[in-house]
Design a binder for these strands. Structure first.
Lengths: 237, 237
DNA sequence: CTCCGGATACTCGCCCCAGAGTATTTGCGA
DNA sequence: TCGCAAATACTCTGGGGCGAGTATCCGGAG
């Protein structure tokens, strides 16, 4: 099959819990929360119960029994099936071994950066930088903190991974913001000019038409068509 | 408002196209593809047309005219409204300035790494490493290639960003795989032991119960409860 | 002349998911 | 002992997204 029988990653978390022992749904949420998994796996009630239904339908888990404690609502206890164990194993291996294409929001934003005036872009990137730094120091404190640092590293790899990625993003953003502020980024001239003219009231449509030859560089290389952009890093006087 | 009136990032791409000039839907897809945006923004027909309906309903875009060329199906040409321009601007600024919590698949995988036997984990990480390297060299070639390198840097920031992030992930994975192979990762002893016993047929449930005290370290610090894990990096003899 | 493949331009329907809502119960302070 | 907030354990609903399908037209090969 091309994709997983149940695609929501929460399903994997459910399988992982039941891998250890039978549980009822609410217990699964609290277990995941206790172990601090809820910020590497998106967890909410709505999805949980529907994901459990899907898992049952695919015979990856099954109802083990129902129990009731006092007058609380009935609990339905689920257990993993052999097929479920197999699926858990295969899915997890795939997640680790196979990078998948994702679409982070910031990448989307960057791909449209030219729409913002250069000074604004620089300022907004500085804001992001500050927020990334705050997040980073918070997570580093967590990692160094009493509770976590006493835990074997194995159980906090997702935290160290996230820290590593945050650092990389931080560095990239800092460098990009700096190069925009110093007017060094390739294309700065055109960029500044575009927004000058927009500010002076020229129509988007006209300006877009002028820019069109510069930014058409799709994935099919047609080297004969290349006009000379003749664009330098020279700051505008 | 807490969130954007139309949440799908594809809507932003549509607005960005119409920001330049009126277009019909199919033209939007081809434009985005030509500019190489389709691998920083998820693009498919199903979503495109529904997103356009949503944008119309929210008065961010409107029908400008319908035209027909030869006997081809009718084209509905859309134009951005003033509210649409404002939304585009605000949304883009938010994307740049405000980091948002995301749930990358690999982080999910890492958070469950302990379920795999250590040697398998190391091997799978090496596979990921190889694939990341392949992806990385491909993208670096693209960035250095004829077409792209002639393009002002401004218009390929999303590519350099992705390269930076791929490098960071690459480094993290390489380091992690290495430390597992050399049995250095904190918790290696417990980890190897757990899988030895599983292999010898002990029940998941028993073993999970034994491990429970070690891995309960939620976000509420209860320093009095800490049992001494007494776990070292010593490789199993 | 005719066939076929690819481009053009959208439509449909199912599955899925998220957030808000519900009803009970226990603990705890006043 | 009275209330009130937090915890327990789900249910419901509606919209959104995605893949697969549809229909037409043009151009070139044979």
């Amino acid at each position: 099959m091309a994709t997983r029988p149940v695609s929501n990653p929460l399903a994997l978390a459910v399988l992982a819990c039941l891998w250890e022992r039978p549980m009822y749904p609410y217990e699964i949420t609290t277990t995941l929360r206790e172990r601090g998994k809820e910020d590497s796996i998106r967890l909410n009630f709505g999805s949980l119960y529907s994901v459990i239904q899907q898992l049952v339908k695919k015979d990856l888990i099954e109802v083990e029994r129902t129990e009731r404690e006092g007058n609380r609502p009935e609990r339905i206890v689920y257990a993993i099936t052999p097929a479920g164990r197999q699926e858990t194993d295969a899915w997890l291996r795939e997640l680790i071994a196979q990078p998948v294409k994702e679409y982070p929001a910031f990448e989307t934003g960057l791909s449209l950066l030219a729409m913002l005036p250069p000074p604004d872009a620089a300022r907004l990137l500085q804001q992001r930088l500050a927020r990334l730094d705050a997040d980073l120091t918070e997570r580093e404190a967590l990692a160094a903190g009493d509770v976590v640092s006493r835990l074997p590293e194995l159980f906090v790899v997702e935290l160290t991974y996230r820290i590593a990625m945050l650092k990389a993003e931080r560095d990239y953003v800092a460098q990009l913001a700096g190069r925009i502020e110093r007017r060094e980024l390739g294309g700065f001239g055109l960029w500044a000019q575009l927004h000058d003219q927009l500010a002076q009231g020229r129509s988007h449509q006209e300006l877009a038409a002028e820019l069109a030859p510069v930014l058409t560089a799709g994935d099919d290389p047609q080297p004969d068509e290349g006009a000379a952009p003749g664009e330098g890093h020279r700051p505008a006087p």
